[in-house]
């Protein structure tokens, strides 16, 4: 049954992907890419990767759609006609596709228990998590502790991407921002639209609460800093859309956002350094408490908080940077 569902979803994914490429209307493309992410999330969920599914749904289908829409607000609505012949690109794509299909022939069978990925370090992680960290969600243990370096790298990728976007778009509103009729968010928000406003206001606290649940329940169920950051950012973006961007900036000003971006990554790094100061290795949380297991759990909670803070800060900053940008 799962396999049938999987094939169905993958077929839909393929159709959506072709539709994204085919569509000349960029707005349609953005909406379809949101659908693509949602289908992908369901597919991940079918494969029992709940953490990845949650990330894909929150970031791919939720936040990136909003960010792409805000990017659309400062560009054209239609794709430009290609200026030159695309035969060369077609040939490259065909060759790459054939190479990729050839590569899949070497893959292990679907759900093969003897696949290399199940034989290498995975059994060790599954064995050691209960003993060393004592949390039910092995994904969080692998992500935050066993492979803490990788996650630190990811946080710095998010951090660097955020800084890069802010360098390109600027942190302050541009000269055209106030008079721009095509602005994404009306300064007054959706005050005239009673129903979306009332329902949206009602939902915001629950979205925030769910974000915090996902943040601090990551050790026990699917979730963690990345997903929670996206959810909290989504709640505040909803607030910005309903009440106007300026009200959202009053809640969390730009200076605080910059602090959040740097602070979360810094928090993660400082926890790592604490390991060194307490006489162990970088990012070894066992020494944070007298009980190594408690130390690991404490370390995970703090670094997940750091991840969440950075992700929230970056996503909100990018949103505000797009929203403040005037039309050329």
């Amino acid at each position: 049954m799962t396999v049938i569902f999987g094939f169905f979803l993958l077929t839909l994914l393929l159709i959506t992907a072709v539709a994204i490429v085919q569509s000349q209307n960029l707005f349609v493309s953005v909406m379809l890419s949101g659908m693509f992410s949602l289908l992908l999330a369901v597919n991940f969920f079918l494969l029992d990767a709940a953490d990845v599914a949650l990330t894909e749904a929150a970031v791919g289908a939720g936040i990136s759609t909003v960010l792409l829409l805000s990017a659309l607000a400062i560009t054209a609505k239609h794709e430009k006609a290609p200026s030159s012949s695309r035969v060369g690109a077609l040939i490259i794509v065909i060759i790459a596709t054939l190479v990729l299909i050839y590569a899949t022939l070497g893959n292990p069978q679907f759900a093969d228990p003897n696949a290399p990925v199940h034989q290498h370090v995975a059994p060790w992680y599954l064995d050691k998590t209960a003993e060393a960290i004592d949390i039910p969600n092995v994904v969080t243990a692998v992500l935050g502790s066993f492979r803490g370096y990788d996650t630190l790298g990811e946080v710095f990728v998010v951090f660097t991407a955020g800084i890069g976007v802010l360098f390109l778009l600027g942190t302050q509103p541009g000269p055209f921002a106030q008079s721009n009729p095509f602005k994404l968010t009306d300064p007054k928000g959706l005050r005239h639209y009673l129903i979306p406003r009332v329902v949206g206001r009602m939902l915001i606290p629950f979205i925030l609460l769910f974000g915090l649940y996902v943040q601090f329940h990551g050790e026990y169920g699917p979730g963690g800093g990345f997903q929670a950051g996206a959810l909290i950012a989504a709640a505040i973006i909803l607030f910005a859309l309903l009440e106007g961007e300026n009200s959202a900036l009053k809640v969390i000003p730009r200076s605080v956002l910059i602090g959040l971006i740097a602070g979360g990554a810094l928090l993660y790094g400082v926890v790592g350094l604490f390991g060194i100061f307490l006489g162990s290795n970088f990012l070894d949380y066992s020494v944070l408490s007298s009980n190594p297991v408690k130390g690991q759990q404490m370390g995970l909670l703090i670094i997940e908080a750091g991840v969440g803070i950075t992700v929230t800060g970056v996503l909100l900053s990018i949103f505000h940077a797009f929203a403040a940008r005037g039309k050329f």
Binding site: Y193, I195, P196, V199, G200, M202, L203
Partner: peptide, 10 residues
């Protein structure tokens, strides 16, 4: 039930 009709209205 809250979001569906709201989305339709919007």
């Amino acid at each position: 039930l809250l979001t569906g009709p709201t989305a339709s209205n919007a």
